[in-house]
Write a protein that binds this DNA or RNA. Structure first.
Length: 473
RNA sequence: GGUCCCAUCGUCUAGUGGCCUAGGACAUCGGCCUCUCACGCCGAAAACACGGGUUCGAUUCCCGUUGGGACUACCA
């Protein structure tokens, strides 16, 4: 068996999007599973739409997802000599020809054909003419066989048949001398020794043209595998309309790369009933045999669930490091210390994203607690001032300020005042966090520390005292 | 319009002719746990698009219908 060689070949006309990422992932997994090579090739022959920023965005996305490549990146714009060489070969063999038809002429013919209900194929005018090369503007076209059936054996779709008569003579070199997509892809895949072309379903219709090109160039076709597309919730191609489609947007929203990888791989591929896969498990178990044929709808809720899962699984020390940029974005300057790790430990059970985790840990670091209106109205009432006062005293007297001693204080106060713990915990929670929902109150008190807790309880008392006066309402 | 692809719970899927009273997961709904919120646990509801064949037997194989999608450029 020759070595497996796969490639990911994005065009740098935007960020790395969800669909592209999955294609890259499948190629990467297939190569890693087979101990083969994964190659990155940038298809930048569209000089109007290709940008440097997009190239960088693709690199960033791949790096974040952990999709490392063994060869490349190759750039098509640096390979013109190679394409020219192959075009010359085709011309020499009489398999390609110069075409001097103008874009306007072609457009006219196309509209006419459409109006008459015919197929808008190129009519082959210059194929008959056989004009030699000249300095007049021209493209180069490939002579497509007029008849015959073309069979492509796809590893996912099975055998797909196309009639050659449906195809026309495709342009392989544009008038500006640039090769076109279908031609450059074939030459690249040949010269890079690609054995498996794994790509989106949307390329299935290109495959017969490319197969013909392989034939014309006298090379064997690689194996093809057309992966079904990812659709938005309205069942059309995933696009910006459907929300975030950029891989890096998920990083910024606080997703973990392993969650996105796990989600993407399970969308279209399965291994029995298993839902969660480590990276090692994926490279071990991935196979094209278990890739489904039908398009899949992108389901943000399931991705969110997976993200929550991976957050729960992540070590507190890693989480605290990942959390810092999110805290800074919220104006909290935090150190990656033991306290932050304790906080992430509390919050990892209750956060679906790092952004959410940052939101719910803000109160630990803010100087002033901002009370949620409803929460304050319900729990910060005159009858709790007594409780707060007692707690301030008891906490003040504690030699050891930890979860156990704090819990004991709550227990004692609840017994002495004949109040259920919840009647104490909720007002305290609001006074310390501003909200009715937070991690366990003993943990929160312990992490905040004696001074902050007492300060915040005092502020709450002041808040309650001032509430009666209209100026503070 | 033409070409091609596709079709199991709302969604991702298991299922490769009898193991199917169709399994799992997300989401939804109920319950338990509990200092709140989550987490976790338990449970419920929820699908083989339709019509013909083939077969002793079809979710599974074949054909058609319907529905959805992709492509249809001197873009990739």
């Amino acid at each position: 068996m020759p070595e497996v060689r796969t490639r990911f070949a994005p065009s740098p006309t935007g960020y790395l999007h969800i669909g592209g990422a999955r294609t890259a992932l499948f190629n990467w997994l297939f190569a890693r599973h087979s101990d083969g090579k994964f190659i990155l090739r940038i298809e930048d022959t569209d000089r109007v739409r290709s940008t440097k920023e997009s190239i960088q965005a693709i690199f960033n996305g791949m790096e974040w997802l952990g999709l490392d490549w063994d060869e490349g990146p190759y750039f098509q714009t640096e390979r013109f000599d190679i394409y020219r060489e192959y075009i010359e070969k085709l011309i020499a063999k009489g398999k390609a020809y110069y075409c001097y038809c103008t874009p306007d002429e072609l457009k006219e013919k196309r509209t006419l054909a459409l109006a008459e209900g015919r197929k808008p194929k190129y009519d082959g005018k210059c194929r008959e003419l056989g004009r030699p090369k000249s300095s007049d503007p021209h493209v180069i076209r490939f002579k497509t066989p007029m008849s015959g059936t073309n069979r492509v054996c796809d590893m996912i779709k099975g055998e797909v048949k196309f009639e050659n008569s449906e195809l026309d003579d495709l342009i392989i070199q544009r008038s500006d001398g640039y090769p076109t997509y279908n031609f450059a892809v074939v030459v690249d895949d040949i010269t890079m020794g690609i054995t498996h072309v794994i790509r989106g379903d949307d390329h299935l219709n290109n495959t017969p043209r490319q197969a013909l090109l392989y034939e014309g160039l006298e090379y064997n076709c690689p194996r093809f595998a057309h992966v079904p597309l990812i659709l938005g919730s309205d069942r059309t191609r995933l696009s910006k309309r459907h929300g975030a489609t950029s891989v890096m947007a998920y990083k910024e929203a606080g997703y973990l790369p392993q969650a996105l990888v796990n989600y993407l791989v399970r969308l279209g591929w399965s291994h029995g009933d298993q839902e969660v896969f480590s990276r090692d498990e994926l490279t071990e178990k991935f196979s094209l045999d278990n890739v489904g044929k039908a398009a899949g709808l992108f389901n943000p809720k399931k991705l969110l669930w997976l993200n929550a899962h991976y957050i729960k699984e992540e070590k507190p020390e890693n989480l605290s490091r990942l959390l810092i940029p999110f805290m800074e974005k919220r104006g909290c300057r935090v150190k990656d210390d033991e306290t932050l790790q304790e906080i992430t430990l509390l919050l990892r059970e209750r956060s679906k994203t790092l952004a959410e985790m940052a939101d719910s840990s803000e109160f630990f670091f803010k100087d002033e607690v901002e009370y949620d209106r409803k929460a304050a109205k319900k729990f910060l009432k005159p009858d709790v001032m007594d409780i707060f006062q007692t707690l301030i005293e008891r906490f003040g007297n504690l030699q050891t300020f930890n979860q156990d001693t704090i819990e004991t204080v709550f227990g004692e106060v609840s017994a002495e005042m004949d109040l259920k713990v919840v009647k104490i915990a909720q007002p305290v929670r609001v006074s310390l966090t501003g909200s009715t929902a937070s991690p366990g109150i003993y943990e929160v008190v312990a992490i905040l520390g004696k001074k902050k807790v007492i300060d915040r309880l005092r502020s709450a008392i002041v808040f309650i005292e001032n509430r009666g006066t209209p100026s503070n309402c």
